[in-house]
């Protein structure tokens, strides 16, 4: 299974990197979306799958990255702007991390959601106070470059998620998930590990937000911080399965293809199918697509 995972991952990565050479705009758009959701869902899993602290507010990191990026493009080279977006998200997570991660269980879930909405409204307020209703971006790098960058972020996030799981950090986070008090008692530095995982899970979404923004060429706070982004990440990661690194990839793959088939013609039907799938997986397939894959390959 492990070898299969690696082959599958390599095939996806190489395929993604080769697609821009074909110059096919539709295929590139598809790869861009897929890589974006893989990067987001993997980042989310670094904190939420490992510790069980479900974040329902990851759109805030995506939005901050996009905002910083739009303020900086034209001023600095676009690579620097992207890095700054990622850094800004990481710094923000570092600043709010300690107080936020003290809150547990369902309170944490709704707190992350509320925080994301708060930041969204504050940014909307700032923008309208500045008299700006949406910003256009010019001098965007070519779409090929953007696709390569996004695929790179997807690969980076997947490697990062694997590294987190298979390190001492991952062991500590798993201990926190199973029993936080016991973990603290036996000497796991609970607060520090949670903060580390939080910052790690916030960084790549910052760059992803920047790239997604460069692709559309237009920044509007209500869209950049759209809570649907947070919900989609959670849905993909949960349907994919939270126990393995392969889970978020499968979840992102499934929903991106589904969205490709339905979104343009029947967006509402897509959302309904999304809701039904989510319910069915939580109730009947708690180990997700990843668990199904295990069973199909005879390793239940």
């Amino acid at each position: 299974m492990k070898a299969l995972d690696i082959i599958f991952g390599l095939a996806l990565a190489i395929g993604g990197l080769l697609v821009p050479l074909s110059g096919d705009a539709y295929l590139m758009g598809l790869v861009f979306q897929l890589a974006m959701w893989i990067a987001l869902a993997q980042s989310w899993s670094m904190l939420s799958s490992t510790t069980g602290y479900l974040s329902l507010g990851h759109a805030v990191f995506y939005g901050i990255g996009a905002y910083v990026c739009v303020l900086l493009t034209g001023v600095v080279p676009f690579g620097v702007a992207l890095a700054a977006g990622a850094a800004a998200s990481a710094v923000f997570a570092g600043l709010i991390g300690l107080p936020v991660l003290r809150v547990q269980g369902p309170y944490f879930v709704i707190l992350t959601y509320g925080l994301a909405e708060l930041v969204r409204n504050v940014v909307m307020r700032i923008e309208s106070a500045l008299g700006s209703f949406g910003r256009m971006i010019f001098m965007v790098p070519s779409f090929e470059v953007l696709v390569w960058c996004m695929v790179a972020l997807g690969i980076l996030a997947t490697l990062g998620a694997a590294a987190v799981r298979h390190s001492a950090l991952g062991a500590g986070l798993a201990a926190i998930r199973e029993n936080e008090v016991a973990a603290e008692t036996v000497g796991v530095p609970v607060a520090r590990l949670k903060l580390l995982a939080f910052v790690a899970s916030a960084t790549i979404p910052g760059a992803v937000g920047g790239l997604a923004l460069l692709r559309t060429g237009y920044f509007e706070p209500a869209q950049a911080f759209d809570p649907v982004i947070s919900f989609t990440i959670v849905t993909m990661a949960l349907v994919g399965g939270t126990e393995t690194v392969r889970g978020p990839v499968l979840g992102a793959l499934g929903f991106t293809l589904l969205s490709e088939a339905l979104w343009s013609s029947l967006p509402q039907l897509y959302m309904i199918v999304l809701g039904l799938t989510l319910i069915a997986f939580i109730l009947f397939v708690p180990r997700g697509l990843s668990g199904l894959a295990d069973r199909a390959l005879g390793r239940g």
Binding site: F231, V234, T235, L238, I272, G275, L278, I279, I282
Partner: peptide, 8 residues
């Protein structure tokens, strides 16, 4: 999460 599905 289930209620989110219902909401959607």
């Amino acid at each position: 999460i289930l209620f989110y599905g219902i909401s959607v």
